[in-house]
Amino acid sequence: MTRPPTAAQRRIIEAADPETGRISGTPAQLDRLIALKLAFRHPRPPHEHFLTPAGHRLREAGDEPPAAEPGPAESGGVFAARLGGEPWSGSDTGPARAREVRTAWQGLLEIRRMTNPDSATDRPCAWERGRLAPSAALALEAAGCAPAEADGEDGSVPGYRVRDTPQPEAVAVQHPDPAGLAACAAALREAGWQVGEHARAGGGSRYLLASPRRA
C-alpha cells in the first residue's frame, strides 16, 4: 500500500497556490509527491511543480485521503478530458470537476505560450494537434459546455460528443440540440479553432467539423 504523505509533504500541499496549484519544496519531497500522484512536473522549462486534482482534493479535505486518479488520462494520469458518452459518478460533477477543468485549461494555455513560435495563447499548439479530440473536448468543457452522459437506460443525457475523423486535423462535434451545437461552435472559435457546420447525407442531423487554427 502507498504510504500517505508526511507532515512536511502536507505542509507543501497546504502552501500551494490556491488558483494554479503551484508548489515548491526539496527535490526529494517533490519527487515523493509525484510518486503519490499528488503533484506533477510541468514538461516545459522552468519545469515547475503543480498539484494534481488529487492533490487539490487532499488540500481541501485536510486529513482525508485522496481519491484515486481517473485513468487513462491525456497528461500522464493527471487529467482526462470528457469526449462525451462516458458514464459519470457523483464525484465527476460540481466544484471539484470545475476546478480540475480550470487547472487543465490554464495548463494548456501555458503550453501554448511556451511552444507557439510567437508565444500566442489564442490558438492551438502542436501538442493539441497531436491530441485533437481531447483538446477540443477540454476547450468545450472549459467554456461551460456539457458533455453527453451515458446512463445505460435510454442512451445518454444530451450534451456534446467529440470524435476523431478520417480528415487530417479535424474532429467532429455532435449535439442533439441546435442551440447546444451553436454554443459548442462559439466555444471552439473562442479557443482558436476553425469551425464549420455540416449536415449529414440525406438531410440528417447537423454536426461541426473543427480544426486547430494555425494563424
Rank of each mutant, 00 (worst) to 15 (best):
R131M: 03
R112V: 03
G55W: 04
P65M: 02
D63F: 04
P117C: 05
A142H: 13
Q174M: 10
S91H: 09
R214V: 12
R200W: 08
P43S: 14
S24D: 15
G25F: 01
E60Y: 02
L38K: 15
V162G: 04
A54E: 05
R41N: 14
A201R: 14
L30E: 10
G196K: 04
E169W: 01
L209C: 06
A142M: 07
P178R: 02
D151F: 08
D92Y: 08
I23E: 08
R10V: 07
G203M: 06
H175M: 13
G77A: 13
R163I: 12
G180K: 07
S205D: 15
I34P: 00
G85Q: 02
R97G: 07
T52Y: 06
A142Y: 14
R59T: 08
A28V: 12
R161C: 09
A98Q: 15
D118T: 11
H42S: 13
Q174G: 08
E74Q: 15
E74Y: 05
L140I: 10
G94C: 06
R32V: 02
P95Q: 12
R129H: 12
W105S: 06
L209N: 02
A142D: 07
R112S: 01
D63L: 08
A133F: 02
R22F: 14
A148Q: 01
E141Q: 14
G62N: 11
A126P: 03
R131E: 00
P147N: 10
R163K: 15
L33D: 03
G144R: 06
E100R: 00
M114I: 03
R10I: 07
A61S: 14
A201D: 09
D151E: 11
A133Y: 05
K37W: 10
A68R: 15
T52I: 03
R113V: 00
C184R: 03
V157L: 10
H49M: 06
V157K: 03
A61E: 06
E169S: 03
P5E: 09
G107V: 08
I111G: 04
I13H: 05
G159L: 00
F50R: 13
D177T: 09
A191K: 02
D118I: 11
T2Q: 13
G152M: 05
R189E: 15
A98S: 13
T93D: 09
V171K: 07
P4S: 10
L108I: 03
